[in-house]
Simulated scan of single mutants.
Amino acid sequence: MVVLTGEMILEFLETLENHIRELRTSIDMESVGKLIESIVSSRSIFIMGAGRSGFVAKSFAMRLMHLGYNVYVVGETTTPKIKKDDLLITISGSGETSSVVNITMKAKSMVGSKIAVITSSPNSSLAKMSDVVVVIKGKVKTEKDDRISKLAPLGTMFELTSMIFLDALVAELLNIKGLTEDNLKEKHAILE
């Protein structure tokens, strides 16, 4: 029989709370402003990430669709060709995920699309080729931190913090567009 002490759960929640508090004071609002401007001024928005960062990307794409943006998830069968007036937003803690780097390179060099990255690694390959870099501190898979590794293995802190940041960004965009939750409900899926 498993004996539940709850110790790890409470420690995880405290660690996440502290991590979010640190994000609140460390986020570069100038970069966030550039990301918002890029979203607002783009014809279409393409979003991608791999693995769990991909789930974060899909969640953000859904919210942008609810806000009325023309948005696509890279890799889906209904995603059209990206064009010069479009924005590609990539989400990658390491900024080195090969599939994401390769696709981003293609969008940048072949098409000339604007590139934004959400990453923990401001000196990564993705960051170096991006027009907008928003740094979300989080332990990436390659770092060694025994305490965090035991509580939140691999990229968990980056993924959770990115999700929270992007939901905060949605709130800002909701305000900028003068929309309400009722406006979002008009685009919410009913075929589910």
Rank of each mutant, 00 (worst) to 15 (best):
T79G: 05
E96A: 13
N102K: 10
N70W: 06
E96G: 05
E96P: 05
E96C: 09
T77V: 15
K114L: 05
K58W: 10
K114C: 05
H66T: 07
I115V: 14
G93R: 01
P80T: 09
G93H: 12
K106W: 12
S92L: 10
S98W: 09
T78W: 00
K84L: 12
D85I: 05
D85W: 07
G95F: 12
S113L: 06
S98Q: 05
S113H: 03
S94R: 03
M105G: 04
I103G: 01
N102C: 08
I103Q: 07
K83C: 14
K83E: 15
M105H: 12
A57C: 13
M62Q: 08
V73T: 14
G112Y: 13
K84R: 09
T119C: 03
S99H: 11
V74E: 00
K58P: 01
E96I: 13
K81L: 13
F60R: 01
A116Q: 01
V117W: 03
K84G: 01
S109H: 10
Y72N: 00
M62V: 08
R63Y: 14
R63H: 14
P80C: 12
N70S: 14
L67V: 15
L88N: 07
G95H: 07
A61T: 14
T79C: 10
T79A: 11
D85N: 14
K106N: 13
R63V: 15
L64Q: 08
S99W: 13
A61V: 15
Y72P: 00
G112I: 04
V74R: 01
M110R: 07
V56H: 03
A57H: 06
L88K: 06
L88C: 10
S109N: 14
G68K: 04
T119K: 04
S121W: 13
G93A: 15
V101E: 04
D85V: 07
T97N: 00
F55N: 11
T79M: 12
L88S: 03
L87D: 03
F55D: 03
S94P: 00
I118K: 00
I103E: 12
L67N: 04
K108D: 12
S59Y: 09
V117C: 06
M105N: 14
S121Y: 03
V56D: 02
V71H: 01
T90G: 05
S109V: 10
K114Q: 11
S92I: 10
D85M: 08
V71N: 04
E76M: 08
S120C: 15
Y69S: 05
S98H: 02
T104S: 14
D86F: 14
S113T: 11
S92Y: 06
V74N: 00
N102H: 11
S109P: 00
S113K: 01
A61C: 09
R63M: 10
D85P: 04
L87T: 00
V71F: 08
K106H: 13
T104V: 13
A107W: 04
M65F: 15
L87F: 10
S113I: 11
G93Y: 05
A61F: 06
S59V: 12
K106D: 13
I91T: 02
I91M: 01
S94N: 09
K81G: 00
V111G: 07
I82K: 01
T78S: 06
S98G: 02
N102I: 06
S94F: 10
L67Y: 15
S92T: 08
S59D: 12
S109W: 11
Y69I: 02
T79I: 08
A57R: 03
S109F: 06
P80K: 05
K108M: 12
S109I: 10
M62Y: 12
I103V: 15
